[in-house]
């Protein structure tokens, strides 16, 4: 049964400054609300605690995609639809575009935002593994200033993150890669059905092969840990290594050690373990197939 509507105060500040002042004056009182595709689901099912909500949806300061020589910067309110429609993003960040395409379906993609996807901190979210793999940084702003955080380090536990109550996620910056190098982007979402699915296990991985060995490997998983998972053991197992059955086995073993999946309403621990390993295996093959 839905939550009690009259107990949900909500206001829409006219500017980012106004929003930051509100957050700073009453720390912890206001919960930011972006496109609503997560919070409103909780509201309808009665799982959203009543309180005060600050709608950021119409703040122009949090919108827009900016492309410079060395980075692509996306406003926190960039929707999945905007990610999909942006030619440079689609070309250079295909895993982010794939995550956007496979988040919900069209109607969700028109409202769901990258910032919301990050701050909702679901361990099953689709864009965070791509952001981890792409070495994204995020900018948190408050009335008294701003700071950049490496996204890989942002989530510290289940629904726990490196954010103060008066901070707002403003934008996401992704370094651009040397176009002269061959990068293999490997994204796969496994969610029982093709769209409108919450991920059971997912991977975003990138790397390149130079001189016969893997370089600059990043591997991230979703739905196999309390947060989006930067698979450090898997990355280390691959970095600087040449292809072979031994490498595939090492990658599988490393992934097995990286992930800590559980049984839940959507899948089993065994399935998540096995498929995460299979995905790591597939990535290794894809990475070296590119060179071959």
């Amino acid at each position: 049964m839905r939550s009690y509507l009259p107990a949900f105060a909500c206001k829409a500040p006219a500017s980012l400054d106004e929003a930051l002042v509100t957050l700073a004056s009453e720390p912890g009182k206001w919960t930011p609300l972006a496109g609503g595709t997560d919070l409103m689901v909780l509201f309808e099912s009665g799982k959203l605690p009543p309180g005060h909500f600050l709608s950021l949806w119409k703040l122009p300061e949090l919108r827009g995609i900016e492309v410079t020589d060395d980075a692509i910067t996306l406003g926190a309110l960039t929707t999945y639809a905007e990610v999909r429609e942006h030619a440079t993003v689609a070309f250079e960040l295909p895993m982010l575009a794939a995550a956007a395409r496979e988040s919900g379906a069209i109607a969700i993609q028109g409202r769901g935002t990258l910032g919301g996807n990050i701050m909702n901190a679901s361990p099953a979210a689709d864009s965070p593994p791509a952001l981890v793999a792409y070495d994204a940084e995020i900018e948190l702003v408050r009335a008294s200033g701003a700071r950049w955080v490496r996204y890989r380090d942002f989530h510290t536990g289940y629904k726990v993150m490196d954010r103060a109550p008066d901070e707002i996620l403003r934008r996401i910056r992704i370094p651009r890669r040397d176009p002269g190098q061959h990068w293999v982007h490997f994204y796969r979402k496994v969610g029982t059905r093709r769209f409108q699915a919450i991920t059971k296990v997912g991977i975003a991985a990138i790397g390149r092969v130079e001189g016969g060995v893997a370089r600059d490997v990043r591997v991230a998983f979703t739905s196999v840990a309390p947060t989006v998972l930067a698979a450090a053991r898997t990355e280390a197992a691959l970095e600087g290594q040449a292809f072979g059955p031994g490498l595939v086995a090492a990658a599988r073993a490393a992934t097995r050690a990286d992930v800590t999946p559980i049984d839940d309403i959507r899948s089993t621990e065994r399935y998540r373990h096995q498929v995460a390993e299979n995905l790591a295996d597939s990535f290794v093959h894809a990475l070296f197939a590119q060179k071959a």
Partner: peptide, 9 residues
């Protein structure tokens, strides 16, 4: 969300 029926895809 958790009881999955087929979509058009």
């Amino acid at each position: 969300t958790n009881y999955i029926i087929p979509t058009a895809a």
